[in-house]
């Protein structure tokens, strides 16, 4: 555990020593707040109005944007995780230290997840306080939604980190990670088009369904936690396999 924490601390320090974390904060936080207040969520079967138009003291619109915005935010946080180690050659040193591959992967995953959670909290809490000042906000819904967002971020981080391990360069890692996560987000859009038996399976497979239909609405469902737990485990396991394969192939 100590070694995982050492990797985690180094990754966090590296994130804040480069402009990457600040750029992500500067773009993500105002963008999501702006969409919440002014645009609403015009995607899906029932479009949701923005706060000013809808006039409801709810953060549902804010949470609704998360699966799509995270599809680009999380790959921005993971793109350097492996590609940069490979470019600089530090990966070679790292794996000659007495560390298990799984420990390195876990440390990197936790760092990305913590950063994503930090960004999420930095977006949701100021907006929630503002809305609470304007109307009667149900804080229990906010906390459940925030928790759901954290879990969603964990699933996305595991997938994006895995894609980053496959990519040779940071930009490729970002683009491929964004493409994969955007594809997972878009699965829900196909639900209305496909025959019912396919649609049901697709809806269950889409990460967004396990957030938007439950914790984003203030409902905590154990099945969603199991779903994201499995997504994280499979993502990290594949990540370990990818790294190990590189050490076999050379």
């Amino acid at each position: 555990m100590k070694r995982i924490l050492a990797i985690l601390a180094r990754e966090l320090r590296a994130a804040f020593e480069s402009p990457m974390a600040y750029v992500a904060i500067a773009i993500y936080v105002p963008l999501q707040a702006g969409l919440f207040f002014f645009l609403g969520y015009p995607v899906g079967r029932v479009p949701l109005p923005g706060l000013w138009e809808g006039g409801q003291a709810s953060l549902l619109v804010l949470f609704a944007w998360m699966p799509l915005l995270f599809a680009f935010l999380v790959p921005a946080l993971t793109m350097g995780a492996w590609a940069e180690e490979r470019r600089s050659g530090t990966e070679e040193l790292l794996f000659t230290y007495p560390l298990r591959t799984s420990e390195v992967v876990a440390g990197k995953f936790l760092a990305v997840w913590l950063l994503a959670c930090l960004l999420l909290a930095a977006t949701v809490l100021p907006v929630a306080i503002t809305v609470d000042g304007l109307g009667d906000l149900d804080w229990a819904t906010v906390w459940v939604g925030l928790l759901g967002g954290f879990v969603l971020a964990a699933g996305y981080a595991a997938v994006a980190l895995c894609v980053s391990a496959l990519a040779a360069e940071q930009l490729v890692a970002f683009l491929c990670g964004g493409l994969v996560l955007a594809g997972l987000w878009a699965m829900r859009l196909l639900v209305g088009i496909l025959p019912a038996r396919f649609a049901r399976g697709l809806e269950y497979a889409a990460p967004g369904s396990h957030f938007l239909d439950s914790s984003a609405r203030g409902v905590l469902d154990l099945r969603d936690l199991v779903y994201f737990g499995l997504l994280v485990c499979v993502g990290l396991w594949i990540n370990v396999l990818v790294i190990e394969r590189k050490r076999w192939v050379g």
């Binding site: 100590k2 070694r3 050492a6 990797i7 601390a9 180094r10 320090r13 590296a14 020593e17 480069s18 600089s88 050659g89 530090t90 990966e91 070679e92 040193l93 790292l94 230290y97 007495p98 560390l99």
Partner: peptide
């Protein structure tokens, strides 16, 4: 290969820790 952004002492401490 080195972590370019780190201070020398912090880098060595990191290596010691892992």
């Amino acid at each position: 290969p080195l972590y370019e952004g780190m201070r020398v002492d912090r880098y060595l401490a990191f290596v010691g820790e892992v």
